[in-house]
Structures are given as structure tokens and as C-alpha cells.
Simulated scan of single mutants.
Amino acid sequence: MTDTKSLEDASKDFAADLSALRDDISKLTASVAKLVKAEASATTDSVYGAMDAARQKLSDHASDAKEKISGASSDLEAVIERNPLMAVLIALGAGLVVGLLTGGRK
């Protein structure tokens, strides 16, 4: 009878331990899910921040390039106005070179 009683006690203890283990696994799963969600959110925020910084940098570089091109265009116009004959001769020479390089029509 004592063997049966100790077997029943051991079975109850095992069932209680198994139940506690299930609860611990459920809590651990919930904690891991929260951690993964928080890390994913932080990573997403980091990526969006990097994209915004890159977009701003690209915009700054584009406006700098636009200003430089505008300045170069103004300088070129001033040079053409000062030396119109030279500008025409340079354009003629460039046209001839391009025509010779492309082979022309035969």
C-alpha cells in the first residue's frame, strides 16, 4: 500500500511539476515575443532614420549641384557674350569632330 501511495504522490508531484513547466514555457514564449517585437520596432525606426538622413543628404547634394550648374551656366553665358565669334568657332569645331567620329552618311 505504501508503494501505491508513494506512486500516487510521485504522480501528483510530476503532474504539478509538468504544469509549472508549461506555465514557465508560456511565460518565456511571451517574453521572447515581446523582445522580438521591441527589437523589430527599434530596427525599423533605425532604418527609417537612416533613410531620412540619406534622403536629406541627397537633397542637399542635389541643391548644391543645381547651384553649381546655374553658376557655370551664367559664367558660360558671360563668356559667350564677351566673345561671340570664339563661341561660334568652338561650336563649329565640336560639330566637325562629332561628325567625323560618327562617320557621317555615305
Rank of each mutant, 00 (worst) to 15 (best):
D3I: 04
T4E: 10
K5L: 06
A10H: 02
D13A: 05
F14N: 11
A15M: 02
A15H: 07
D17I: 03
L18D: 09
S19Q: 10
A20I: 04
R22M: 06
D23W: 01
L28F: 03
A33P: 00
K34Q: 13
L35K: 15
L35D: 15
K37A: 15
K37V: 15
E39K: 13
S41A: 15
S41D: 15
T43G: 11
T43Q: 14
T44S: 12
T44E: 14
D45C: 10
G49M: 04
G49N: 10
D52N: 12
R55L: 13
R55K: 14
Q56C: 08
K57A: 14
D60L: 07
D60H: 05
A62N: 12
S63C: 01
D64R: 02
D64K: 00
K66L: 08
K68P: 00
S73A: 09
S73L: 06
R82A: 13
L85T: 15
M86W: 05
M86N: 10
A87Y: 02
A91E: 13
G95M: 10
L96S: 09
V97P: 00
V98R: 10
V98P: 02
V98Y: 10
V98C: 06
G99P: 05
G99H: 09
L100R: 05
L101Q: 12
K106L: 08
